[in-house]
């Protein structure tokens, strides 16, 4: 009985208007190139725990050949800003136009700005918005390098923040 009704259940799921959601939604960091591609019916993309053959107990999302990943399956710190900016690009650019927001604060923290300067960081990105995002073609990496330029030129932020990757701990 249970089995039969599960069959019926499955048949009806077949009839549901499945959403066309996940098409093309990107992944980040250690999932790059290793994710199971979501179907255009809304199946979720996941960071697959792919085996790369280097150890017995495979950890997560490890793929050889992605520069964003360390061999321990986490993001390389040197790629942290880049991956963050790419994955949250629309939210980040929107917040820059607004001059404040959660993603913007995180970006400030990734440049070692003290919390007291977050507001100034946000105000600067709004003020210099047209320089930071020149047009629809600006890539996340270009945005970051322009942001670093602006930080260097900024009177207060150039002192309190630090754009060097080497300062990221560990």
């Amino acid at each position: 009985m249970i089995r039969n009704s599960l069959v019926v259940f499955a048949v009806f799921l077949f009839l549901l208007p499945l959403s066309a959601g996940a098409a093309g939604y990107g992944t980040a960091g250690c999932g790059l190139g290793s994710m199971v591609i979501g179907s255009d019916r809304g199946a979720k993309q996941i960071f697959a725990a792919t085996t790369n053959g280097t150890s017995g107990s495979q950890t997560f999302g490890m793929t050889s050949g992605t520069s964003n990943c360390g061999d321990h399956g986490l993001l390389n710190l040197s790629k942290e800003r880049e991956v963050f900016a790419s994955e949250n690009y629309t939210s980040l650019v929107k917040e820059m136009a607004q001059g404040k927001g959660e993603n913007l604060n995180i970006l400030a923290s990734m440049y070692q700005c003290p919390i007291a300067n977050y507001q100034e960081f946000g105000a600067m990105t709004q003020d210099k918005f047209n320089d930071l995002v020149a047009g629809a073609q600006t890539t996340p990496i270009e945005l970051l390098s322009r942001l670093e330029n602006q930080l260097n030129q900024h009177r207060a932020l150039s002192k309190s923040c630090n754009i060097q990757l080497s300062v990221l701990k560990r």
């Binding site: 959601g21 980040a28 960091g29 996941i46 725990a49 399956g73 994955e87 949250n88 939210s91 993603n103």
Partner: peptide, 19 residues
């Protein structure tokens, strides 16, 4: 079924914003 680990913000983008 497998466990996977990823930056939390990617899941926020997926659930919060995409879906």
């Amino acid at each position: 079924g497998r466990f996977a680990i990823f930056p939390y913000y990617t899941k926020v983008q997926e659930y919060n914003n995409l879906e």
